[in-house]
């Protein structure tokens, strides 16, 4: 779907129609491609409006042709949505550091808890996990199997039904045992309708554990609902960063872009497979360049 953007860039750069017509056409193509990649409609229009405004206000530097300059603006605006130039800081700012993973059912929280534990363990931190999902059958067992695989201890209370209590006792115990990085896995929830209680529970976990960072785990295939969902999570427990999972599928994470806007939180990692080491630090530039067509965009950036 986002391939549509790449084609539009190519068409625009190589086109022979007048500049103004080409710009209009490109913006329409961009809007279509973004909407069919599940980026929220409102967001698409605010992005293209920003691009149009800059076109009016600024003028191209001498080193660039007008068309190239235009693509550079598109690139800038898209990149700044995804977190700008810098790679996210993934090392904890202070120690000990408590991370809480939240998200909708089945997005990959438990798997990602294992992946993060492995990632930080390799960086030399003393890591432990807490299993606070009391609903999904064998949720704790799943986390334990992952923990065992990477040699990271897991705190859990089999049979206990009070997720808030488990999280609180787990984090306290692990802190007293001098673990530096503690990752709390929680149950999947969306919080609508009957699940309002579950959102309340998440908030209680958040308030009693007081994590240094809440990470929202989002599935790359998530559609137009992404904005609303992310907003609800953010309101219940302040989201500090986002991980997009399942980037190895065909979905390119358009929904996740809406989540970034809804929370103002940066994307830190992407999941690229089911295995424990299939986690990458998110690189906004690379991501956007891929969206726009790597070669074309890089060539333009180099000219500046």
């Amino acid at each position: 779907m986002l391939e549509g953007i790449r084609d539009a860039v190519r068409k625009f750069l190589g086109g022979t129609t007048s500049y103004d017509v080409a710009v209009d056409e490109f913006i329409k193509d961009l809007q279509k491609a973004l909407i069919s990649s599940d980026v929220q409609v409102k967001l698409v229009f605010s992005l293209t409006n920003k691009i149009k405004e800059r076109l009016k206000k600024e003028s191209p530097p001498t080193s660039l042709e007008r068309r190239e300059w235009f693509i550079k603006i598109v690139y800038d605006e898209l990149s700044s949505l995804f977190g700008g130039d810098k790679e996210p800081e993934v090392n904890p700012g202070s120690l000990p550091y408590v991370i809480m993973l939240v998200g909708v059912q089945g997005t990959g929280k438990t798997t990602t808890a294992g992946k993060l534990a492995y990632f930080y363990k390799k960086r030399g931190y003393k890591v432990a996990l807490v299993g606070a999902d009391v609903y999904r059958p064998a949720a704790l067992e799943q986390l334990m199997q992952l923990g065992k695989q990477i040699g990271v201890p897991v705190y859990g209370e089999p049979g206990e039904k009070d997720a808030v209590g488990i999280a609180k006792r787990g984090v306290e115990k692990l802190l007293s045992e001098k673990y530096e990085l503690i990752i709390v896995d929680t149950a999947g929830r969306h919080g609508y309708g009957e699940e309002a209680k579950l959102l309340e529970e998440m908030k209680e976990i958040y308030e009693s554990v007081k994590p240094n960072e809440v990470i929202l785990v989002i599935d790359a295939s998530l559609g137009q609902k992404a904005y609303d969902l992310a907003k609800r999570f953010h309101e219940a427990s302040k989201v500090g960063s986002i991980i997009i999972t399942k980037m190895d599928g065909t979905a390119k994470g358009g929904g996740a872009l809406s989540a970034v806007v809804a929370t103002g939180a940066p994307i830190k990692f992407i999941g690229t497979g089911e295995k424990i080491d299939e986690l990458e630090v998110f690189n906004p530039k690379r991501f956007v360049a891929r969206v726009l067509g790597m070669g074309d965009v890089e060539a333009i950036i180099e000219k500046i």
Binding site: D38, D219, L222
Partner: peptide, 15 residues
């Protein structure tokens, strides 16, 4: 299929 998925659900179905 997950109803929360966006356009990718169609790709999944095709596959």
């Amino acid at each position: 299929l997950d109803s929360l998925a966006g356009q990718d659900a169609l790709e999944q179905a095709t596959y």
